[in-house]
């Protein structure tokens, strides 16, 4: 076992892990942050997306030890300081951007990464960016709408489609 230490949602997090311990296992099992979901475990579905040093990564395809010293953000750290939903989360609620909700943590984290790089994406850019996030309820339409709404754009046109 090796000691690993990182910052998770602004708080220091450390623990003993094996070489093979995945980042998502460290977050879920050792830190109790079960918001990051393991959908496929093959880096296809994106339900485990978290940010490592500001970049979206699949936490099931990164070793915990690779995140030594990193700043990690998970879905649990997304809400506003007063506990209310942040603008992306609120848009998912307002636009029914989730059905069963399993993919939602990864969708929200990917959306946050997209909007940080590209504050006013087009619908095509949103759909391209979500290539690695799978929703098996096939709720993409409302997810895309929620992300466009979160970017402050008018979504009435795509709502009419």
């Amino acid at each position: 076992m090796t000691q690993v230490s990182m910052t998770v949602n602004g708080k220091q997090a450390s623990g003993d892990v094996e070489g093979r311990t995945l980042l998502v296992q460290f977050l879920r099992d050792a830190q109790g942050l079960t918001g990051s979901h393991v959908g496929c475990d093959t880096s296809q579905c994106g339900a485990c997306v978290v940010h490592v040093d500001g970049q979206a990564v699949k936490a099931c395809t990164m070793l915990a030890l690779e995140a030594e010293g990193a700043e990690v953000s998970t879905i649990e750290g997304q809400a506003n300081a007063d506990g209310s939903l942040n603008v992306i989360q609120q848009a998912f609620q307002d636009h029914h951007g989730l059905q069963c909700g399993f993919c939602t943590p990864g969708m929200v984290m990917s959306a946050a990464a997209l909007l940080k790089d590209n504050p006013k994406p087009t619908e095509t850019e949103v759909r391209d960016y979500l290539e690695g996030n799978i929703c098996r309820c096939t709720g993409y339409h409302n997810i895309v709408k929620a992300i466009l709404a979160a970017s402050g754009q008018d979504v009435s046109a795509i709502a009419a489609e």
């Binding site: 994106g46 970049q55 979206a56 990564v57 699949k58 990164m62 990917s110 990464a113 997209l114 996030n133």
Partner: peptide
């Protein structure tokens, strides 16, 4: 290549 999260790693 792949998707954005894959390209970050």
């Amino acid at each position: 290549i792949g998707d954005p999260a894959v390209r970050n790693r």
